[in-house]
Simulated assay, not measured.
Amino acid sequence: MYRKKDSLLSYKVAIRQKFEIERKGDFASFLLNPSRALLRDLCVQRFKDNPSKEDLKTFSIFFQFEFDPTTLNKLKAQTDKFRPIETFLKGETDLSPIEGINLAAILVNYQPRPYLKFDKSDLEIDVISVTTNEEIDLEKGKTNSEIIPRSTLKKKIGMAILSAVGLFSVGYTAKEIVLPTRECMQWQVDHYEEVDCTVKGIVSYNSAMPIDQHQFKLKKIEVDSNFVFFKGKKPVVFYCKVNGKPEFFNQLGTHPETEQVLKPISLHIINKYVKHKME
């Protein structure tokens, strides 16, 4: 089970992943290179298309007025309110207000939303890599296609049912039924390792967190000018800056120490921080 903080991070990562898919979909004209004005216009399109009660509530809380086709001029005056969402989707900044995050989910049409529905759902985000729906193993050079978000039921632990006359018994170990092993993960230099949630190890116990199957596969990588950064036109390296310098990783996710959402590599970053460094 995710802690609240981990669940919110997962929600934001899932929204960013959906954005990378949607920016090449039917609304690419709005999302391929989003600006505040384009996101505002996309917002109008989304809310014209049979919005749910939850979406309408998100709109009214965020903008402080109800959505109505007659209030579009009023929405134009709120264009600057889309700036934090713009920079969040581009991976430049984080986004904190819940209603702003929920509005971002509406813009990229991510489900389940709003956050409270996501937090209570059984949906586990395994992998949605940038633009491709592929999980890429950089070390082995293999791709695993057709990996999509899938809804999985939480494991339900069987309860022993004893008859009134005691005719049957259940042959499960009490420990497995009542106290299932709690598995956690902890960042170790350049990768995650499984740790026991209940035991304080040599490394800092506070940095341990419940295993997130997608984040667990994150690895920090070293790159040079000969590194393969793209498969076709699709980035397979992701980064964020720490103290002004980029750190590189093998997949989309959050930085294990700063918790920033990783961004796909670009030619600008390669030229400025990789090739220039080699010269």
Rank of each mutant, 00 (worst) to 15 (best):
220 K>T: 04
40 R>Q: 12
264 P>H: 09
117 K>E: 00
68 D>Q: 10
198 T>A: 15
26 D>R: 11
63 F>S: 07
66 E>Y: 07
97 P>C: 10
58 T>L: 05
91 G>K: 02
83 R>E: 14
115 Y>S: 06
160 A>F: 07
241 K>L: 08
199 V>H: 06
190 D>M: 01
78 Q>D: 08
262 L>W: 02
265 I>Q: 02
150 R>Y: 05
272 K>R: 14
218 L>F: 02
191 H>Q: 13
129 S>F: 08
72 L>M: 13
8 L>C: 02
153 L>Q: 11
76 K>Y: 09
148 I>H: 11
60 S>C: 03
74 K>H: 12
230 F>I: 04
5 K>A: 15
218 L>V: 10
14 A>G: 06
41 D>A: 10
103 L>Y: 08
63 F>M: 08
85 I>G: 04
168 F>W: 08
168 F>M: 12
217 K>C: 04
183 E>F: 00
153 L>K: 14
163 S>N: 15
44 V>S: 03
163 S>F: 12
233 K>W: 06
84 P>G: 05
201 G>P: 01
268 H>I: 06
8 L>N: 01
224 D>G: 05
157 I>M: 09
155 K>I: 08
122 D>P: 00
95 L>K: 07
274 V>C: 06
258 T>M: 01
171 G>M: 02
67 F>H: 09
250 N>G: 06
3 R>M: 09
255 H>C: 05
279 E>W: 09
123 L>G: 00
227 F>Q: 01
12 K>H: 02
127 V>S: 07
228 V>K: 14
277 K>V: 06
202 I>H: 09
134 E>F: 00
106 I>M: 02
253 G>P: 00
21 I>R: 12
260 Q>W: 04
146 E>R: 08
37 A>S: 15
47 F>S: 10
89 L>R: 01
56 L>K: 15
249 F>Q: 05
147 I>C: 03
279 E>G: 11
277 K>M: 12
99 E>P: 02
75 L>W: 01
189 V>G: 04
82 F>V: 04
246 P>D: 08
88 F>D: 06
78 Q>C: 13
79 T>A: 14
